[in-house]
Design a binder for these strands. Structure first.
Lengths: 300, 300
DNA sequence: TAAGGTTACGGCGATCGTAACGATC
DNA sequence: GATCGTTACGATCGCCGTAACCTTA
């Protein structure tokens, strides 16, 4: 048994058990991969992959048990490297942030800017994805931390910390009927709605608000992206329900935003990361920066 | 980085950082060990051992952080092998039991005999040690499970399950004054006492019983071993305080045992094993056997 | 000077790459 | 026949062992 065999199992897991693709990912020829897997299975004395002919189609019962340990080993191996790199120079490294469009555009700019001032040597990679994918990115270590509102919390491999709370707002063009007067669920429901896709940016809370009423929202456009929603609101397609902090008074002068905190429960944006994954010091400082930015947000 | 380097770090840890002894343990020459360590440190970019001249004298701060991950990797590696072996034939293997003399002689014979009937293919290694050493045997994986009464419970790496409860008894030769009449702490304290060493077999509970009295026990002999205590009781040196189940009516006909459950708090014998360590199925069955034997004990 | 660690060098074995072959869709 | 996996074989690179050398108790 050696570490490259362990690594191979991980890569196979992430590539639908394709030997040729695994070989590609590991920058070696496919025959080498084939042999290493044979050697490993021979050493264990029992196959860890189910086969259909020569193709691998899944894990055996043994394989499943082993993959849990494989994940642990790979995690620890990476941790050793990260710990060492962090020890040598804790101001240099890479930070992979996985988040949704709304967070990336309307919450992260300030903390990221501040962070870059303190840590100019840290390269920041930001990857946008759906909340579901975000969790996956953490598990496959394609991201170090995830910032998102939905879909985290059930996973016992994750540590999830609250970041900040916010409310939805309705945005309409100036002179739109909704720009004046009280807003009720009923009045809201009388307009065609543009808001986030399922599973995005507090969408579940919008559902919650209407669940116990007889009314149904007429959602004519659902997008993952606040800017898409705004664009179509500007075109007069209907009223947008977006995250409150996604209304930018400077840029969105042609729109009117009105708070919906009395109608839709508050949404909670969280910071999540893998439990057993070592995070460099600067990553911890980045999370501090997020919390500071969150506090400032709540003051306004 | 490779697994033998990781293994090397573990071996060094267990051999006071001596390269030559580590080489011996790993069945390779010392120069090879020296080189592998150099390569590993070079790969990390920073030393993980403190040195005095050429000798290693301890871990650096980096080294300490890394050793935690090293332990995880070694554990997972061993787990993979154990899981595979267990999968191929769950009736064959090795079982290392670490326990104290009293348990080994007076509690374990019955469950072990039963276990052997079911699993003739499992080799049982029993290692006797002090409770303190038992924990260490678990950590260094020289034992799979430990059965003991003292000194377990604080360790978060261990899973500790209760096994059975028992009381101390006093043993005296026939015709000894204590063989008749009520027994009080005061009366007990008036005789020279022979009992277990500190940290052994419920000794702490004997201390507890006398802590809040002005009296002090005159312990003239302390042994780890019940049989040693009995031997000297037979020679008339004093009265023995031993574990109740360590009195064997068949063999100890020349002695009288009298229960002390009204004087000394009950002792709790536990089964402990390493949290992240995979135990073969038969080991789990062995623990079941222990619990069955424990139940039978409590009926009598 | 013995014991422990490092450095130099030669040899062996593990593992890779090339290439031909086999199977499956 | 294109894709994917296996087998065979030669070449290379890593790692070990021998041995000489260095350092410290």
């Amino acid at each position: 048994m050696n570490l490259s065999q362990i690594e191979l199992l991980r890569v196979l897991q992430e590539n639908e058990f394709s030997l040729s693709r695994a070989a590609e990912k590991m920058h070696i020829v496919q025959s080498a991969v084939s042999r290493q897997l044979q050697l490993f299975e021979a050493e264990l004395g029992s196959p860890i992959y189910q086969r259909q002919g020569k193709k691998l189609i899944g894990l055996t019962a043994l394989g499943q048990r082993i993959m849990a340990e494989v994940a642990i080993i790979n995690m620890a191996k990476n941790n050793i490297q990260t710990i060492a790199a962090d020890f040598i120079d804790s101001n240099q490294g890479v930070l992979h942030i996985a988040t949704t469009h709304t967070q990336a555009k309307y919450f992260l700019p300030k903390p990221i800017l501040r962070f870059r001032e303190k840590y100019p040597g840290v390269r920041i990679y930001m990857v946008e994805a759906s909340p579901e994918q975000l969790i996956n990115k953490l598990h496959t270590r394609k991201a170090d931390i995830a910032i998102c509102t939905e879909k985290v919390g059930e996973d016992s491999d994750l540590i999830v910390n609250p970041c900040y709370e916010w409310h939805h707002a309705v945005v309409v063009p100036k002179n739109h009927p909704l720009s004046t007067g009280d807003i009720s669920l009923k009045r809201l429901a009388s307009f065609p709605i543009l808001t986030y896709s399922f599973g995005f940016t507090g969408r579940s809370n919008i559902e919650t608000a209407f669940k116990n009423t007889a009314m149904e929202l007429d959602i004519i456009l659902a997008a993952a992206d606040t800017d898409v929603i705004k664009t179509y609101v500007r075109l007069g397609m209907g009223v947008g329900i977006i995250a409150g902090m996604a209304y930018d008074p400077a840029v969105d002068q042609d729109l009117v935003a009105r708070d919906l905190s009395h109608l839709i429960p508050c949404s909670k944006t969280k910071i999540a990361y893998l439990k057993n994954n070592y995070l460099p010091l600067y990553t911890q400082h980045f999370m501090d920066e997020l919390l500071i930015a969150a506090k400032e947000l709540n003051f306004h």
